[in-house]
């Protein structure tokens, strides 16, 4: 039977740390001694090492061309992009257009019912068309316009 102090080492965590050389020198020596007399721990350590050996340690390969291309991409990302397209004046005109769209959407009356056509297919299509535009869709449009305005604000081109 093992001594109590040695039983501490009959623990997988100690063997993991032993394998990686992470036990302090005194514990490392003690575990080495323990392994000489404990067949179960020797077997456990052998199995642990067998698993870890399966895991590849080969350096992942980035070819010199790939590394060069990566370096160039990092270099490019450091340079601020020119924003000729999004000038403040352009931002204002976009905002004004969005505001006009909003006004038109809010003030246009909902379409009224239309006359039904005789054909079945045509009648179905016209019935769909004649349905009043749901309020939800109008609100969605409103929200989209608001989103556009917020995006313009976010990009700093509205002011």
């Amino acid at each position: 039977m093992s001594k109590p102090s040695e039983d501490v080492f009959c623990h997988p965590e100690s063997l993991t740390l032993f394998h990686y050389g992470e036990l302090d020198p005194a514990d490392h020596l003690r575990l080495e001694k323990h392994l000489q007399g404990c067949a179960a721990c020797r077997r456990e350590l052998a199995q642990l090492r067998a698993t870890l050996e399966i895991l590849p340690k080969v350096e992942p390969e980035f070819s010199p061309e790939e590394v060069r291309s990566f370096n160039e991409r990092v270099g490019r990302s450091l340079r601020p992009k020119q924003r000729h397209f999004f000038r403040p004046a352009y931002g204002w005109s976009l905002a004004a257009t969005a505001a006009v769209l909003l006004m038109v959407t809010l003030h246009s009356p909902a379409p009224g019912p239309r006359e039904k056509s005789p054909g079945v297919a045509l009648r179905t299509a016209s019935e769909i068309e004649s349905l009043p535009e749901p309020e939800l869709l109008l609100n969605m449009e409103l929200l989209e316009n608001l989103d556009l305005l917020q995006e313009l604000e976010g990009t700093g081109i509205s002011g």
Binding site: P12, E13, T16, L17, Y20, E22, Q47, T51, L55
Partner: peptide, 13 residues
């Protein structure tokens, strides 16, 4: 960190 290493090894095993 030791605990993380040990748990990782246990799962992989």
């Amino acid at each position: 960190v030791k605990a993380h290493l040990h748990r990782a090894v246990r799962i992989l095993r």
